[in-house]
Each structure stands twice: as structure tokens, then as C-alpha cells.
């Protein structure tokens, strides 16, 4: 009986998803049915065309794009640090997910930071107003916390991607609050990702950072370094 061969089955054939019995049966039908053969060939060619439209980029392009070559170099030690971390490290962090935490960093996480290294990276990768607000609230909360020995926590606030807007002159709705926070807390560093700044420049944005904001060559590298040093991690 010659039942219609669905597109799903033909796709599964093209993608090598059929078991040998199914494949042989289909091949036999394809050999004797010009229309079916044409459909199969069309799908196969489409697959090749799509693959050809997205060649694998050179690694330098994927890593650094058109960025300043001076900052394209550190990819090796950063990646090495990351691999070392993955090979030998043990780390836990905390991510704020869809629900923006009204209460800031949960008490359990604060206790973990206090009990361990007393050092934490607060990472912002969003320009959603609610997340920016939450990030600042958490920065204040962490900067006002002391570890078990009574020393203030060391806090690094790291912004990249869309989150960089929070630290931009003209892009941040919280410039005064950030200046105040920085002035009153020597234990807090504000860091902007240079790669993210480069991308904003490429988009035509004039990126001027707020006062006392430092520049990290890349957020990824900074994170890898801190995690290997035993810092805790909180992402907003």
C-alpha cells in the first residue's frame, strides 16, 4: 500500500533519524517515486543551503570581533583560568531569576558570603529598570554587610551587555545614587566591561562612564579571575 510520506518522515530521513528498517523501506519508495525523490532532494538541498549561509566564524571574530586588538589578547589566560576553575574548582553562586527580589540578596546567600571569603561579585547583564534598581539595592545591601571578622565585605559590581547603561553618563537614571554609594563605601568597586563598551561604540553610542567606574578588559575574564580566587557570585 502506497501511503503518503509525510514531510516529518522525509525530514527524519534527511536528518538520519530513521532506524535502518524504516530507512531502507523509504529508500525503496524513493527509488521508485520521482515526486518523492524530488521532495527528498529538495529538503536535502535546503539543509545544505542553510548550513552554507552560516559558516563557522573565525575564532578571532567570535572572540573579539572588530574590537581593540589590545584587548583581544587576554582571551587565552581568561579561558585558561576558566578551564582551571572547571577542572579543579568548586563554586556556587546565586542567580536572580524572573522574579525581581524585593528583599535583595536572600539572607541565606548573605550568610554564605559572610562565612566564606567575604568577597562577592555582583553581576548585572540587563537594562531592565527593575533589574537595575534591584542591582543597586543589592550593591548597597552587600556593601553595608560585614564578614565574620567584622570587616566590610569586598564587593565588585560588574556590568556588561545592556547592563553597562547603568554606569554610563547619560544612560543611567541612578547617577547620583551611584556616586553616593561609591563615595560612602570604599569596599565597593564599580567595573564596566571594555568589550561591552566597544560594542556600544560600534552602535554609535558615545560611552562615557560615571566617575570612579573602573574598566575591566572583559567581564568574562574578570569573572573567571574572581571565581578562581574564591569570590562568591551573584547575578541580577
Amino acid at each position: 500500500m502506497n501511503t503518503h510520506v509525510s514531510d516529518e518522515i522525509l525530514n527524519a530521513h534527511i536528518d538520519n533519524e530513521l532506524d535502518p528498517v524504516e530507512r531502507n523501506a523509504l529508500l525503496e519508495r524513493i527509488a521508485n517515486d520521482a515526486d518523492l525523490r524530488a521532495r527528498a532532494c529538495e529538503l536535502w538541498q535546503l539543509k545544505q543551503v542553510l548550513r552554507g549561509a552560516y559558516p563557522l566564524p573565525p575564532q578571532k571574530s567570535a572572540l573579539a570581533g572588530r574590537r581593540n586588538r589590545a584587548f583581544a589578547g587576554p582571551a587565552w589566560p581568561h579561558a585558561l583560568a576558566a578551564s582551571l576553575l572547571l577542572a579543579v574548582g568548586s563554586f556556587s553562586g546565586w542567580f536572580m531569576h524572573d522574579k525581581v527580589e524585593a528583599q535583595g540578596v536572600p539572607a541565606r546567600q548573605i550568610e554564605a558570603i559572610r562565612a566564606e571569603s567575604g568577597r562577592v561579585v555582583l553581576h548585572l547583564f540587563s537594562d531592565e529598570p527593575a533589574r537595575m534598581e534591584a542591582a543597586l539595592r543589592m550593591a548597597e545591601q552587600l556593601a553595608n554587610t560585614h564578614d565574620k571578622t567584622g570587616q566590610p565585605l569586598r564587593v565588585e559590581f560588574l556590568a556588561n551587555g545592556p547592563g553597562l547603561h547603568l554606569l554610563r553618563v547619560g544612560g543611567s537614571p541612578y547617577a547620583a545614587r551611584i556616586a553616593d554609594l561609591r563615595r560612602t563605601h570604599n569596599n565597593l568597586r564599580l567595573l564596566a566591561c571594555h568589550e561591552a563598551m566597544e560594542r556600544m561604540h560600534e552602535r554609535g553610542l558615545n560611552v562615557v562612564l560615571l566617575p570612579n567606574v573602573e574598566i575591566a578588559p572583559s567581564a568574562e575574564g574578570q569573572l573567571a579571575q574572581r571565581l578562581t580566587q574564591g569570590w562568591r557570585y551573584v547575578q541580577v
Binding site: 571574530s61 552602535r203 569573572l223
Partner: peptide
């Protein structure tokens, strides 16, 4: 990066997505 680009068709967004992905991967490696 190639996959991210094929989803968003923006080099800048692809850059951001990959960086965010690798940052999360670092933290969640275990």
C-alpha cells in the same frame, strides 16, 4: 556565536548572548 547569530541576526546581540552564556557556564560548571 554562530548559533546565537542565526537566532538573533545581530552581531552585537550575538556577542552579548555568548558572553552571558559563558559567564553562566563558568558559574554553573559543576
Amino acid at each position: 556565536w554562530r548559533l546565537a547569530y542565526a537566532w538573533c541576526h545581530s552581531r552585537h546581540v550575538a556577542d552579548d548572548l555568548v558572553q552571558d552564556t559563558l559567564a553562566k557556564a563558568l558559574v554553573r560548571h559543576n
